[in-house]
Design a protein around this nucleic acid. Structure first.
Length: 467
DNA sequence: GCATGATCATGC
DNA sequence: GCATGATCATGC
């Protein structure tokens, strides 16, 4: 085989990639034999379409053209919603070597600065032999993305340099992640500044970023509001410190003052206090601080990084939090078939960064803005969530026990009092909003919550680091 | 109509 | 007053 050398320019690669469109995978010579097992479709395209042998060399697949080939699945959901099915896994991180690199000499940048991405639709009810490439994208990171990716890379490398490669997590960064690579927990590799063995990890473009590429760069169907209007604004700071600097002028302001500043024009001449405030007033105010018409969660940056904004209200003492934090409803039928390692809950906390917006209630008058911070769940706390998840699964399998107390249903799902971090509680419209248990009976819809006491502890920690 | 974020309400 | 069950409000 020619090791890719017939493709001398990126245009050669792009042209050949175009030819892959609409060819059924099963129609390639001996194509079927590639289609079982992970990475099979990628290998099929490399060998049977582009005509070179799969490899894991440090240079890009098409060395002369400086292009790395990637093949990746997406799903089409209800209302023609296109979503990347997975993160895009790039090269494995050699902790020993990478710790000595600069961004420009890093294995990530050496191999992946230019990507030829082939997208195929993952269709559940259709044999893989009938799937095919539908879109192609020759992707070179634009400066607005690169400025965040450089910072993501720096965070990953600083974690390794601090002797904490074993604490790496995909949720600590925004677009470029360090995702786990091994199937078994026993598979580890050495790190340079600590004797503790670390899980093997690879660089990846996180799943929300891939969804963004699909929707905005390939299909060109979305154009979200941006928080950062031009990349130059991030020249002197990271995205996160930029966010703080935008909020800083309003810290200490009351809700009332913020409403007067940002919402009076919208509300007309109605005086503040005469109308019922929306439940998401704090999120609306933060959005206006950033000059947004829509929601913070719908901005380009939050969509691309999959950051989830959450507002928190502190009690007037500045220490307690009354309410626990809810997450989307889970379905018991799905839960009992999941394993923790591949569960939706673990995946979310493993990959998601949160943006906590903190207000503090006042003894008199409206709450004040205390500040905001980014957070991701540390591995040790995720271990606690695992215990709650396992107990929930076990109860679901063995049968939820119900009793009735004063017209209110009681159950034996994990309570806030049983675990430091998390519990399970109802989350529906009302008592008639139900889910089905494995035995066919019904239960009010439930979700995992983070305990109010855990949230309060996170806030205390944040306040400590501020000072 | 429903999912989701957020908050209310009751019993102990 | 806290823990847990129940429900509201927004926005898609």
């Amino acid at each position: 085989m020619s090791e890719g050398s017939v493709y001398l320019t990126k245009e050669d690669v792009r042209r050949k990639a175009e030819e892959a469109k609409n060819i059924r995978f099963g129609d390639y010579p001996s194509g079927i034999s590639y289609l079982s097992g992970k990475g099979g479709i990628g290998h099929l395209l490399e060998e049977k379409h582009f005509g070179y042998r799969a490899n894991s060399r440090p240079e890009p697949d098409f060395k002369e053209a400086g292009v790395e080939l990637k093949v990746t699945p997406y799903r089409v959901g209800p209302n023609a919603t296109y979503t990347s099915k997975e993160r895009l896994v790039l090269n494995i991180i050699d902790y020993m070597k990478e710790a000595k690199a600069t961004f420009e000499t890093s294995s990530f940048w050496t191999k992946n600065k230019r990507l030829m991405i082939l997208f195929y639709e993952h269709r559940d009810q259709v044999p893989i032999a009938d799937w095919f490439i539908s879109f192609t994208l020759l992707y070179e990171f634009p400066e607005v993305d690169l400025i965040i990716i450089r910072d993501d890379w720096r965070r990953i490398i600083e974690t390794i340099r601090a002797g904490k490669a074993h604490e790496l997590t995909e949720s600590a960064t925004l677009y470029l992640g360090a995702c786990t690579k091994a199937a078994k927990a026993t598979n580890t590799r050495p790190q340079p500044y600590s004797p503790i063995p670390a899980k093997p990890r690879a660089y990846c473009l996180k799943q929300p970023f891939m969804t963004y590429l699909l929707r905005n760069r390939v299909l060109k169907i979305e154009d979200e509001e941006k928080i950062v209007k031009n990349a130059g604004e991030l020249q002197e700071s990271t995205f996160e410190s930029y966010m703080y600097s935008r909020i800083a002028p309003y810290i200490g302001w009351t809700q009332e003052r913020l409403i007067a500043e940002f919402l009076t024009a919208e509300a007309g001449s109605r005086p503040v206090g005469s109308i019922q405030l929306p439940k998401n007033i704090n999120e609306i105010l933060i959005a206006r601080i950033f000059g947004l018409k829509g929601r913070v969660s719908k901005t380009a940056e939050f969509m691309k990084a999959g950051i989830i904004p959450k507002t928190i209200q502190l009690e007037p003492d500045g220490q307690h939090v009354r309410e626990s934090m809810s997450f989307p409803v889970f379905h018991f039928i799905d839960l009992v078939d999941e394993e923790w390692e591949s569960s939706g809950l673990k995946e979310m906390f493993d990959t998601t960064r949160f943006f906590f917006i903190v207000f503090r209630k006042q003894e008199v008058g409206t709450p004040t803005l205390e500040g905001a911070f980014f957070w991701n769940m540390p591995a040790s706390d995720l271990g606690q969530v695992r215990e709650v998840w396992k107990k929930t699964k076990s109860i679901a399998i063995n049968g939820v026990e119900f009793s009735e107390v004063g017209g209110r249903q009681r159950n034996n799902l994990p309570k806030a009092s049983e675990n430091r971090v998390s519990h399970v509680r109802p989350h529906g419209r009302d008592g008639d909003d139900t889910d089905t248990l494995p035995d066919g009976s019904t239960i009010t819809k439930q979700c995992f919550w983070l305990n109010n006491t855990y949230i309060a502890a996170l806030i205390a920690e944040w306040k400590d680091t501020k000072e």
